[in-house]
Each structure stands twice: as C-alpha cells, then as structure tokens.
C-alpha cells in the first residue's frame, strides 16, 4: 500500500471538509473493498476519511412500510435486524449473503452502494424497490443513481447518508454466487410493489445493474413464475468474462427470476 493519511470524521460536515482539503481524498466506510484495492495499489488516495464513527450515518428505522437505513450500517446489522425482516425479509436475506461473516461485520451499505460494483448485491434490490439514495446534498432515485460500472451519480465530496424504500407486498432475492469470489455471478431481486412488479438484476449486465422491464410487464399480468416462460433475456445486454458467457448469464437471469417469484413472501 502506498502511503496515505488517515482521518477520523465525527460529522458529515467534517468528513466533506477533510476530503475537500486533501489532494486526493477518499471516504473510507467499512473498507472491505477500498483497503483491499489500496493494498493492490489499484487505488492510492493521499488521504482517507473514516466515516464509521459519524453518528448521523448510523441506524435503521422502520416506520409503517418505510425503511430507512443509515449509510454506515453494516451488512451484519441489516441481516440481523428484526425490524427490516418484519417488513422486507428479502432485504435482510440479501445482506446475509454478502461476503462472509467477517466481511459483513465491517462492510456497510453506504460503502457498497457508493462503490457500485457491477456484481454487488444491494443495487439489484434498490432498483427493484425504487429506493431513494439520500446524500448530504440531495435525494437521488436509485434508477438515476447507478450510472455504469463502478460509476454513480455522486459528485466529488458528496456522501451517502442513508437509503430508504417502501416495503413491497412481496419480494425475494436469488443469487448465483461466483464459486470463488462469492460475488453475484447473477443476482435477481423481484418485488411486487404498489406500482407493480419490479425485477432488478445485478452481476449480469454489461453496463451494471438494470431492471428487466419485459419481465416486469409479464409479472404484472400474473405474479407467477409461469408468467416468465415466454420472456427472452437479451444476450446483447449481458456481461461476458471468463466466469460466464452472455447466453449463460441470460439463462441464469431467467432461472433466478423464476425462483425469486416462487420464493417471494
């Protein structure tokens, strides 16, 4: 790892001013991606600003059907939250499938969402739940937030404060983990919400997370796995790498979407 300067922020305002003042500052949440990336010298920020101790980024609140999760909440806290599980068990299940127990104790939802890894789990849920990403400056719809591979709508010095969503009637997440990395080779989050069926797909798209609108239309007819039988997944939209060819990923999208519909509660 190249040399870096560590700062610990106690407020959002302090964190943004520390990063602004730095030559090439980065926010550090749980560090489960950033520290590894710095060790490989793929990132070399002059300064890192630790957000784990900022009170305004902590905590889960569930009010009626509205779930709000502070950005510094760990995957483990989400997976273990009875409040989240009561209104949207699929979201807690998704968090329990990220990494391993040790990673889940450190990694945070804000860090994961800001990184927008094309194989990360949360983006599939956030687009399917039509969630809102709250930053220190504004509220961004999840559909506008995830721009491309590792690219988001966040500006420099902008911090995710929380994410929020309305719990759907039914939802489920199905993940086909890469056997080596445990990232999603394909992950599909299906939700039956007030505005209709929503299908978010991660790990598969060549441009990152996307909503499978043909599947949503089919499920709006009847929310049943059989409704997806006639839907073709466009292989032209699929990522291709040594882990899976486009047609393999396209098939997985359909298989996992059907399983998610069956599993939805």
């Amino acid at each position: 790892m190249y040399s870096t300067k560590y700062h610990r922020a106690s407020s959002v305002a302090e964190a943004t001013s520390l990063v602004s003042a730095a030559e090439d500052g980065k926010f550090l949440a749980g560090g489960q991606t950033l520290i590894s990336t710095m060790k490989q010298r793929l990132a070399a920020p002059s300064d890192v600003v630790d957000l784990r101790h900022v009170d305004d980024l902590q905590g889960i609140s569930v009010s009626g059907e509205t779930v709000r999760i502070g950005a510094a909440t760990t995957h483990a806290q989400i997976a273990e939250s009875e409040d989240v599980r009561n209104v949207c068990a699929a979201f807690a299940d998704l968090a329990s499938l990220i990494g391993d127990p040790h990673v889940r104790h450190m990694g945070t939802i804000g860090g994961s969402v800001a990184n927008n890894d094309p194989a990360a789990d949360y983006p599939a849920a956030l687009v399917a739940l039509e969630a809102t990403v709250h930053t220190n400056n504004r509220d961004i719809a999840a559909g506008d937030f995830f721009v491309g591979l590792f690219e988001t709508a966040l500006e420099e010095d902008e911090i995710i404060v929380a994410v929020s969503f309305a719990a759907p009637k039914k939802a489920a997440y199905q993940k086909f983990p890469n056997p080596a990395s445990r990232y999603a080779l394909v992950g599909v989050f299906v939700a039956d919400g007030s505005a209709g069926a929503r299908v978010g797909v991660t790990g598969a798209g060549s441009d990152g997370v996307f909503r499978a609108s043909d599947m949503e239309t089919a499920l709006d007819g009847e929310f049943a796995a059989g409704s997806l039988d006639g839907v073709e997944v466009d292989t032209g939209l699929m990522m291709s790498d040594l882990h899976g060819a486009p047609d393999y990923r396209a098939n997985l999208v359909k298989v996992l979407a059907k399983r998610a519909v069956v599993a939805a509660v």
């Binding site: 560590y6 560090g31 040790h102």
Partner: peptide, 12 residues
C-alpha cells in the same frame, strides 16, 4: 465481532 485484520488499518 470477528473481522479480517488484514483488511483494516490499525488506525481504524
């Protein structure tokens, strides 16, 4: 809580 000590700074 169990964490991976190779993936965090001592300062953290």
């Amino acid at each position: 809580k169990a964490v991976k000590s190779c993936t965090m700074l001592a300062a953290q």
